[in-house]
Simulated assay, not measured.
Amino acid sequence: MQGADKGQTASLDGNGLSIGVVRARFNDAITTALANACLKELAALGVSDRHIVQVTVPGALEVPLALNAMANSEDYDALIALGCIIRGETYHFELVANESGAGVTRVGLDHQLPVANAILTVENEEQAWARVEEKGRDAARVAVEMANLLEKLL
């Protein structure tokens, strides 16, 4: 392939970007901490508070539906999915993890809109707490970088 690599340099400049955040309330203390880390990083990247819309849903399975509604509005440059699924003793963990992940991916592909997936899938609460800060920050950076990249590509 010839020509310049349009995605060669990651742009983490969030100035002027509109970001939608969907947070599952299930495992509320963990997802609240995840959201706080994400919002702090969005601010550090220059995304204005007035350009961030946050909504909450009951659990991870409801996240894709809210993301899809936000994507349909065409008001956002990127979306962020936040949640926490902790393995239990039944198959329900796999169902929720697989279906929510597939739904989040589908929203991004169907709408050609970046969706940062920070729905934690962990074995126990300890693992979740160990990942909250990093995954929250990562979600913010992914959303901003991909919004800027798609702006160049489309």
Rank of each mutant, 00 (worst) to 15 (best):
E126R: 15
Y91N: 13
H51R: 15
T9F: 09
G7H: 07
V104Q: 01
L149M: 12
N27D: 03
A60Y: 00
N117A: 03
G46K: 04
T105G: 05
H51V: 02
C38T: 11
E145D: 12
L42S: 08
T121L: 01
E62R: 03
L120E: 01
V57Q: 01
S73Y: 07
S18M: 04
E126N: 05
T56S: 14
A128P: 06
Y91W: 14
K40G: 14
V96D: 00
H51E: 07
N148S: 12
V132L: 03
L12V: 14
L17F: 03
V22T: 08
A128V: 11
S73G: 10
S11H: 12
F26S: 05
A147M: 12
T90Y: 07
A66P: 00
N148V: 11
D77H: 11
L79Y: 02
K135T: 07
G108V: 12
A29D: 15
N27I: 02
N72I: 04
V142F: 13
A78L: 03
S18L: 01
A81L: 01
A78R: 00
L154K: 14
A143I: 09
R50V: 09
T32H: 10
P114S: 09
Q127I: 09
E125Q: 12
V57W: 03
A140D: 11
L39G: 10
I30V: 11
G88D: 08
D110P: 02
I85K: 01
A130C: 08
T105V: 11
C84L: 10
L113Q: 04
G16S: 14
A44L: 14
L95Y: 14
Y76T: 07
D28I: 04
V21D: 07
A128T: 04
E89C: 05
A143V: 08
D28Y: 11
L42M: 09
V55C: 05
L113W: 06
G7P: 00
V104F: 03
D77R: 01
L65W: 07
N27K: 06
R131S: 14
L42G: 01
T121F: 02
L61K: 08
I85A: 03
A140C: 09
A140I: 08
L120G: 01
T9I: 15
V122K: 01
L34I: 06
E133V: 10
A60K: 00
I80F: 02
E41I: 08
S11L: 11
C84V: 04
P58F: 08
R106Q: 14
S48P: 06
G101N: 10
H51K: 15
A128I: 07
W129T: 13
V104L: 07
A128N: 04
